[in-house]
């Protein structure tokens, strides 16, 4: 008797992405079930972020399909935006909103009931309580990265997408991030992360996709190996 497989949160089939009609990497195909995580690895410019953007509906794919919970991805649908939380490398802030108010905006916009409590808890977890009432532009780049991560976690989600979340984070916060992502999986969420960090990869990913001319699905161990200098 076969074991029951968890339902697929994300299904990517023969996805080809690129700019002005030219693919930047080989076609990607993978399935990400609930409670699992998948990492995208590859050198700079290999197409990891482009793949993520296409999966999020922020870039029109050249070919192939992306399904979230069995439905073709269309970021114009409010239900899609409610299910997917993405932490990309954005660095834009409302000039009048403080750190806490940015998080509150996200929580309220997603219908979080006890928004203020959730915001306070995440500010504490990410070491931003002392900066709650300052503008994000007054933070260091690492603190702004922590704020973006907190914004991705302050709202409900079924799929969490992160683009190189380890960038600009100190060692302690990287460990916190790894713990948070594992907790995400245990709670039944799916995690898709593009990373260059072998430690984060080993700690979090169940499988990995090496993005390049021939994009392929590999084991985490193989991906960690591939991140060693000179391999990719």
């Amino acid at each position: 008797m076969s074991r029951a497989r968890p339902p697929a949160v994300l299904r990517v089939s023969k996805l080809s992405v690129g700019w002005t009609g030219r693919p930047v990497c080989g076609q990607a195909s993978f399935t990400l079930p609930a409670g699992r995580s998948l990492a995208l690895v590859g050198p700079n410019g290999s197409g990891k972020s482009t793949l993520l953007r296409a999966i999020l509906g922020l870039l029109e794919p050249l070919s192939g399909s992306v399904q979230l919970l069995g439905v073709e991805v269309d970021e114009r649908r409010a239900s899609f935006r409610a299910q997917v939380s993405a932490v990309l490398d954005d660095d834009a802030w409302f000039p009048a909103l403080t750190v806490a108010e940015h998080l509150y905006l996200v929580a309220r916009g997603h219908g979080v009931g006890d928004a203020q409590d959730e915001v306070d808890a995440l500010l504490d977890e990410f070491g931003l309580t002392g900066h709650a009432d300052v503008l994000p532009t007054a933070l260091s780049s690492g603190q702004r990265r922590r704020l973006l991560l907190a914004a991705g976690l302050v709202r409900p989600r079924s799929l969490l997408v992160l683009d190189e979340p380890e960038q600009r984070l100190d060692t302690a916060t990287r460990q916190l991030l790894a713990e948070r992502l594992n907790a995400e999986k245990e709670a039944g969420g799916a995690v898709l992360v593009a990373t260059h960090d072998p430690d984060l990869l080993a700690a979090v990913a169940d499988r990995a996709v090496i993005v390049g001319d021939e994009t392929r699905l590999v084991s985490t161990a193989e991906a960690v190996d591939a991140l060693r200098p000179g391999v990719l």
Binding site: A82, L97, R108, G111, V112, G113, D114, R155, R157, A187
Partner: peptide, 24 residues
């Protein structure tokens, strides 16, 4: 309300766009 696997348990209906603009 959309069912999500992870995140804050207590949920209210998603507010109107106008109320988000007014908040800002």
């Amino acid at each position: 309300e959309v069912e999500c696997a992870v995140g804050p348990a207590e949920r209210t209906p998603v507010p109107a766009a106008r109320s988000m603009r007014r908040y800002n």
